[in-house]
Design a protein around this nucleic acid. Structure first.
Lengths: 207, 207
DNA sequence: GCGTAAGTGGAGCATGCCATCCACATAGCC
DNA sequence: GGCTATGTGGATGGCATGCTCCACTTACGC
């Protein structure tokens, strides 16, 4: 690969990441090319489909999400690990429409993203199990609730990223408060979890 | 207005409501016209802009939302009124992407919808005040939290309306559980409420 | 019946996007 | 310095959608 080509490639990824974050995953390909200072053809050469571009643009951040889960599993306090896992992931997703969309699975065929999502859910299951065993997480908390939290968090948007983040944090705080064992209101039993498919929310986050 | 014209108008509204609910607010105008068995021109004559069509199509359901709030205020039990208000509104919005989008304010210039939204928030404020005074709703619950709940609820979507409704119900149950006074976990204080503008979420629900 | 105003349908233009193709430029090896 | 594979940019065709215009049709008052 020629040096100038590599430079262009890097700049495309950088710009794509920023534009995806600001405007969502369906920002015009031409806009990305223009902001990156390259022609459309160059963009399409490197990334034959939008999906390919998305996958590569967010590979790093999705990896970071996974490492957050690893940290949570390594946390000596299971409940603290559970809370920071949810809080950190939601905060990451809050400011970045593109990352949310990618993670939720707007492009089910982007294998990397899908694989990461599945791995993330598997790791989350371990975090949950540990927090339950410690008696700090309510017993009827389900793995589907993680998808629920992510989707709900994804619904919180605002013109200003700061506002969105603040609201997201408050939502997550309310939810975590309910997840803690012993705080349930027995007069209002919880409906059963629904088998949410994260990727059902594709159009929500896709814009 | 001629009888046949009135009939066409009614059918357009009916079809628009259904298509908006299923596919979101940006379903092609041509699709609505076709399904209603009229030409494009007829549609545009009656409803010069998409906004006008949206406003009229959801006028009835938005009115129903408002009556739910009236009922909540009239409920002898303030806490029960508060809970059913949130639960009912979220359930209504859950199955209907178009209604959600209209209510959240995808079209800020549609005066009817905007006015209804403001009135709804004002009535909600009264419901909240009453539940707080009864000592059943936590004191730091803010009116902005209603917008937060609606936006979060809006993030819950699924291919199947039943799944979406089930997940929405579970989310709302978790949240209400946290809203109840006396159930707070003092070790995890709540972040301050963010001044959420419902219409910031336009693109979320617009699809 | 019939004349007319109200109503109608679809062709047609404009726009914005995706994705391809091809003539030209240039990095890097010799 | 020159050659060539590699890389580049923009023109281009195709498609979906928004919205308008105009020639034709039909309900309804007389």
């Amino acid at each position: 690969m020629r040096a100038d080509a590599r430079q262009n490639r890097d700049r495309i990824l950088e710009v794509a990441q920023r534009l995806f974050a600001e405007r969502g995953l369906d920002v015009p390909m031409a806009a990305i090319a223009r902001r990156a200072g390259v022609g459309i053809a160059t963009l399409y050469r490197r990334f034959p489909t939008r999906e390919a571009l998305v996958t590569e643009a967010f590979a790093e951040q999705i990896g970071h999400c996974l490492s957050v889960l690893d940290d949570a599993l390594a946390d000596p306090d299971p409940w603290h690990g559970f809370c920071t896992a949810i809080e950190t992931v939601c905060a990451m997703l809050s400011g970045d429409r593109g990352l949310s969309a990618a993670f939720i699975g707007a492009y089910p065929h982007a294998v990397d993203v899908t694989g990461a999502q599945e791995r993330a859910l598997r790791e989350f299951a371990a975090v949950i199990e540990r927090a339950k065993r410690a008696g700090e997480l309510r017993a009827d908390f389900a793995i589907e609730d993680v998808a629920m939290v992510i989707m709900a968090n994804n619904g919180i948007t605002s013109d200003s990223p700061e506002t969105a983040l603040a609201a997201s944090r408050r939502l997550v705080a309310y939810l975590i408060n309910s997840f803690r064992a012993g705080h349930a209101d027995p007069s209002r039993p919880l409906p059963p979890p629904a088998p949410l498919q994260l990727r059902d929310a594709f159009d929500q986050a896709g814009t």
